[in-house]
């Protein structure tokens, strides 16, 4: 129970940071990337300060033997720089540039009441389901 409540609190903190900083506002995000147009560099400070806090925070937190509500830490272990990583990240960037929404921006923005984040998140879940189906099909083909 406490574990679930703490996750909700962390989500609340994440969402508040996104909304207050403007990462959930497509116009602001697109202006951040429009260096040769209506450039708004302020989101660089958002990325940088998030990075500094996380960099220092991980070094403090990972000294603990385990999280408070979990028997062990779950950290990614993969190292390979493969085609799915490169191609997937390239596609993600094109989608972000077309819509101005990234997942961490759009999900808190669902609570704003505007229709655009709802359309975006529904389409994004569609894309994730397509990726799952394609992966399932290629696994099946590999098994035959």
């Amino acid at each position: 129970m406490l574990r679930t409540v703490s996750a909700a609190g962390i989500g609340l903190s994440f969402g508040a940071g996104i909304v207050v900083s403007g990462m959930g506002n497509p116009a602001k995000v697109l202006n951040f990337f429009d260096i040769f147009g209506s450039w708004d560099p302020s989101l660089m400070l958002v990325m940088l300060s998030a990075l500094v806090v996380t960099f220092v925070g991980y070094r403090l937190v990972l000294r603990r033997p385990a999280p408070v509500f979990e028997p062990k830490f779950h950290l990614p272990t993969r190292r390979e720089l493969d085609l799915p990583l490169i191609g997937g990240s390239a596609l993600f960037g094109i989608g972000w540039g077309l819509s101005g929404f990234c997942p961490g921006g759009a999900i808190p923005a669902l609570g704003s009441g505007a229709p655009a984040p709802v359309i975006f998140v529904a389409s994004m879940i569609g894309g994730m389901l397509v990726a799952n189906a394609l992966r399932y099909l290629s696994l099946q083909r590999a098994a035959v």
């Binding site: 993969r78 989608g95 972000w96 101005g100 997942p103 961490g104 998140v121 389409s123 569609g126």
Partner: peptide, 19 residues
């Protein structure tokens, strides 16, 4: 917004992460 969402969904699935 629809095309962006589809590409983001595909991309983060294969790329293993977002911003």
């Amino acid at each position: 917004i629809v095309a962006g969402g589809l590409l983001v969904g595909l991309g983060v699935s294969y790329g293993g992460g977002c911003t």
